[in-house]
Each structure stands twice: as structure tokens, then as C-alpha cells.
Design a binder for these strands. Structure first.
Lengths: 106, 106
DNA sequence: ATCGTAGTTCGACAGTCGTCGTAGTACGGT
DNA sequence: ACCGTACTACGACGACTGTCGAACTACGAT
């Protein structure tokens, strides 16, 4: 099985660290990704379909940061990767945090 | 009036940026400060009275970061500076955010 | 006036971060 | 088999960050 179909590493809920989550959310580009994912809901979206003012490689970098922090879930489908917000985990760990952030004006 | 009694610059509620707040909260030392301030409540505490594993100058640096982000309020009293959490402003701007963060295990 | 306490400021340093371009890998379709 | 699409990996670069020590300022007390 090739790298594209390997399951990407995601931290289990119990390993998610608040510092990592906050750091992941503190970047404008990543915050934009999270807002877009929250808007779309649980259907998810291909990484590349999110409109971002950065190159492909930077996009990959940000998505990895979000994934390794436990903020998003990435699932390979064909040549694409469907990304979803880990709302259930975040809400369980830090109730109100995500809603509070999404309530911010933008 | 000397520098120690000058009013320190704090952003008004309307100027507080979610990215700055998240960045301010993403550091372990600063998160510890915020947790301590939340525990103490609205009475506030002298900056130096918070137990931290860093030197004086690093402490000053972190407190400035928190203050300029709009997370804390610092008021000079004698040679000390009383620090309080801007709970009302943060709760108004991002309802649930602070509580969610404070709910995190530590 | 002198001293101690509380906190700031400055410069320096190592480490991290966001960004990019280039090269590479994987999958689906023709 | 080949090509295009989707994304990753690597190396590089400048910018920012957390940390410190040393010097400095301000206030209160003796």
C-alpha cells in the first residue's frame, strides 16, 4: 500500500494538548481553514479545494500542523484527501472553545 | 509622573484580535499565568507573585504579550503591578473560549 | 539620603515558524 | 503505458520567539 493510501497519523483524543491546539489555531491561514471546515460541516472537503493565499507546499504544511495537533481529520480518497474538523473531540475536551473562536468577527 | 505610574497601554475591546489572543495563550508559561489569574479571580495579583520557572525579564516579556493581546489588565500600585484577567472582554468577544481552555487538563 | 524591592529595557543567542520552489510519489483516466 | 492531477518531501531563507544576563528606573521604607 502506497503512501497516499496509508492512514495518516492522528493523535487520539487523550493525546491532544491544549497548547498545540491553540498554537495551531493562532495562524491566520490555519484559522481560515478551520472556519471553512466549520462552515462546510461533517461532509468534509478536499484539501486543495479550500481557497487559500499560499502555495501547495505551504498548504500541506498547515494541514499537517492542524492534523498533528488533533484539530482536523484527514482521510485519503483516491488522489484527494478529505479533511474534516474534529468537532466532537474538541468540544469534548474544551467545551465552548471552538464556538468561541468561530464567534469572532472575520 | 514616572514610568512606573504611567498607565500601561491596553487595547480596547474592539481592537482585540482573535489571532493575537490565541497566540498569547499558546505558550505554556503564559497559559500558566492565565490559569493562575483565573483561579485568583478579580482581586488580581502582583506580577512577581506568580510562581514561574523563568527569570524576571522573561516574565515581563510574557506579561507584555498577554497585555498587548488584550488578555490581561495591568495596573500599577506602588512598586508592584496588579494583574487581572480581562474575563468580561474575552467572554463578550469569544463566549466559551476561556472556559473551554480552562477546562483542559493540566 | 540611602537602600532594597519590583519591574522594565536592551542586546544577544539559539530555536522555531511560515513561506517558497523544486523534485518526487501516488492514484485515476485515456 | 502514459499523462495529468493531488498532494508530499526536502532544503533554503528571512522573520519571529523565548530565553537569559546586565544595566537601568521607580517607588517605599529606614
Amino acid at each position: 500500500m502506497g503512501a497516499m493510501t496509508e492512514t495518516l497519523t492522528h493523535p487520539p483524543r487523550s493525546d491532544i494538548q491544549i497548547e498545540s491546539v491553540l498554537h495551531a489555531l493562532a495562524d491566520p491561514v490555519r484559522l481560515r481553514i478551520v472556519r471553512e471546515l466549520a462552515r462546510i460541516g461533517c461532509d468534509g472537503i478536499a484539501c486543495g479545494a479550500i481557497d487559500l493565499p499560499v502555495t501547495k507546499s505551504t498548504r500541506t504544511h498547515h494541514l499537517r500542523t492542524l492534523r498533528e495537533a488533533g484539530v482536523i481529520q484527514v482521510r485519503p480518497v483516491g488522489t484527494s484527501r478529505i479533511t474534516t474538523l474534529r468537532r466532537d473531540d474538541l468540544d469534548a475536551l474544551y467545551p465552548g472553545l471552538l464556538d468561541g473562536i468561530l464567534a469572532a468577527p472575520h
